Simulated scan of single mutants.
Amino acid sequence: MPLTNVLDEQDMKKLKSELEDCGCIGIDINNYSSPDYSVLRFHRIGMGMYSFRLYDYPLTHQQQDSINANECLIVYNDSTVFEFGGGIFGVQYFVGKTEFLKDLH
């Protein structure tokens, strides 16, 4: 169902404004390739894209460990994951991941 069928025009404008204010540059909701989470894209550096994955359910510790094993993903909490997509050029891993995980724990 398109978002325009859920929100009226005023609510759509408010949502768009608030997402722009926090730096959101794109949204993937109910994407056929990743039905368990939605993605908020918030920052691009060159070809690289930084995003948040917002899961529809709490991740188990096993799922979190599996996600953290991916060099492009960082589990923030039981339903939020930071994601880095390197694009065609540049690094293909989340720069600063090791330091971030040390500070988080």
Results as ranks from 00 to 15, higher is better:
residue 102 K to Y: 01
residue 95 V to I: 07
residue 99 E to H: 11
residue 92 Q to D: 02
residue 63 Q to M: 08
residue 91 V to M: 09
residue 10 Q to K: 13
residue 40 L to P: 01
residue 97 K to H: 00
residue 36 D to M: 12
residue 22 C to P: 04
residue 55 Y to K: 06
residue 25 I to D: 05
residue 92 Q to R: 09
residue 105 H to M: 02
residue 101 L to Y: 01
residue 59 L to K: 02
residue 26 G to F: 06
residue 22 C to Q: 13
residue 46 G to F: 07
residue 62 Q to P: 00
residue 3 L to Q: 05
residue 76 Y to W: 09
residue 1 M to A: 14
residue 1 M to K: 13
residue 80 T to H: 09
residue 95 V to S: 07
residue 57 Y to L: 04
residue 87 G to H: 04
residue 61 H to V: 00
residue 62 Q to C: 05
residue 48 G to R: 11
residue 101 L to P: 01
residue 50 Y to H: 12
residue 38 S to T: 05
residue 26 G to H: 06
residue 91 V to D: 04
residue 73 L to Y: 04
residue 53 R to P: 00
residue 22 C to F: 14
residue 91 V to Q: 10
residue 88 I to H: 11
residue 105 H to S: 06
residue 35 P to G: 08
residue 82 F to K: 04
residue 83 E to D: 11
residue 3 L to T: 03
residue 25 I to L: 14
residue 72 C to L: 03
residue 68 N to A: 04
residue 4 T to G: 13
residue 7 L to I: 02
residue 89 F to A: 14
residue 86 G to T: 02
residue 45 I to Q: 14
residue 76 Y to H: 10
residue 89 F to G: 10
residue 96 G to Y: 01
residue 60 T to S: 07
residue 4 T to H: 13
residue 100 F to S: 03
residue 2 P to W: 10
residue 8 D to K: 06
residue 83 E to R: 14
residue 32 Y to F: 13
residue 24 C to E: 01
residue 34 S to L: 09
residue 47 M to Q: 13
